[in-house]
């Protein structure tokens, strides 16, 4: 039973990181209208930008309390988010924008994102090499929850920040004018345009939010696991599964999808070999799509 709760806690923590990435996938699917196979590379890119910042400072800063990192890494998330958003906007301008103007089929955009992902991933590989990197090698002591569950202090902070970010984004989408315009564009781009929504601006906002969240997820992953050029790509299936499980474009859905995928991956090692862990989100996805094609939280079409 203790093992179950340990995997459960790990699942929630993994799930929180997946959720941050899946929100971007979900926004891209509903507003930009294609499955972005290059989204995972935005996580990797953000994580490595933060690594550059940390390396420039020469340290992650004096560890705060029982955490492994200090303020430098916290600050580094900001340039990482901005740089990742700029990368996403640049790619949109060069590749996807041109295809959209030509009214290219949705599948053309998916192909292009396949190619973009490959280019970004290998550019990172070329620059940083394939060896794992770490923000810090500072050792931290696990804390015990309810006597039995061991979690790292870093993981608790990651979870708390993820919750705050999701709540803030929910309020933004719900109550701000831009959030309203984003939801309207997801619903019906032509009607939104007629009603004075600047769709190009909404596309820019969507990329920026998706990329910034991806960068944050990447930094959190780098902090709790490690940094590798394939870190994002190996998570791609989890991100898609979470976004689709939650239902196209639903923020709350993507969060629940992320948690569900994280839990399923971690709990699965109790029944099957850990070698198959990466396939778990896929199996979950196929089952849900078979039973309920619109996802758990999506509107039935």
């Amino acid at each position: 039973m203790n093992a179950f709760w340990q995997h459960f806690a790990d699942g929630i923590l993994t799930g929180a990181i997946i959720a941050l990435g899946a929100i971007g996938v979900s926004l891209a699917m509903s507003i930009l209208r294609f499955a972005n196979f290059a989204h995972a590379e935005l996580l990797t890119f953000g994580a490595y930008i933060a690594l550059i910042v940390v390396t420039m400072f020469g340290t992650v800063g004096e560890p705060i309390g029982q955490l492994s990192f200090g303020w430098t890494l916290v600050v580094a998330i900001v340039p990482a988010g901005i740089a990742t958003a700029l990368l996403a906007l640049a790619i949109d301008r060069v590749v996807y924008g041109g295809l959209r103007r030509r009214n290219a089929a949705r599948m053309t955009l998916i192909f292009a994102s396949f190619g973009v992902g490959l280019v970004v991933r290998n550019a990172i590989h070329m620059t940083f090499g394939g060896d794992p990197e770490y923000y810090t090698r500072e050792l931290t002591i696990a804390v015990r929850l309810f006597e039995t569950i061991r979690v790292m202090p870093d993981q608790i902070v990651v979870l708390a920040v993820a919750v705050v970010v999701v709540v803030a984004l929910h309020l933004f989408l719900r109550y701000s004018a831009i959030g309203l315009a984003m939801r309207a564009t997801a619903e019906n781009p032509d009607l939104s345009r007629i009603n004075g929504v600047d769709v190009d601006r909404i596309v820019g906002w969507t990329w920026s939010i998706a990329a910034a969240l991806a960068a944050m997820a990447g930094v959190f992953m780098g902090l709790t696991v490690q940094l590798r050029p394939e870190m994002g790509f190996n998570l791609l299936l989890s991100l898609f599964a979470a976004a689709i499980l939650g239902g196209n474009g639903s923020l709350i859905g993507a969060v629940f999808g992320g948690l569900l995928v994280g839990l399923a991956e971690n709990l699965s090692v109790m029944v099957i070999s850990a070698g198959y862990r990466q396939a778990v989100p896929f199996v979950l996805l196929v089952v849900v799509l078979y039973v309920r094609p619109s996802g758990l939280f999506g509107a039935r079409s």
Binding site: M29, F34, A35, F37, R106, M107, I110, L236, L237, F240, A241, I244, S273, G275, Y276, Q278, A279, P281, F282, V283, L285, V286, L289, Y290, P293
Partner: peptide
């Protein structure tokens, strides 16, 4: 299991199949 899916879901599902087969090959 998947042919009725929307085309981008089919893309993701088949991508997942390949990943699963790769894992079976390895494990």
């Amino acid at each position: 299991a998947t042919i009725r899916l929307r085309e981008d879901y089919l893309a993701i599902a088949t991508f997942g199949i390949a990943t699963t087969i790769q894992l079976i090959a390895l494990n």
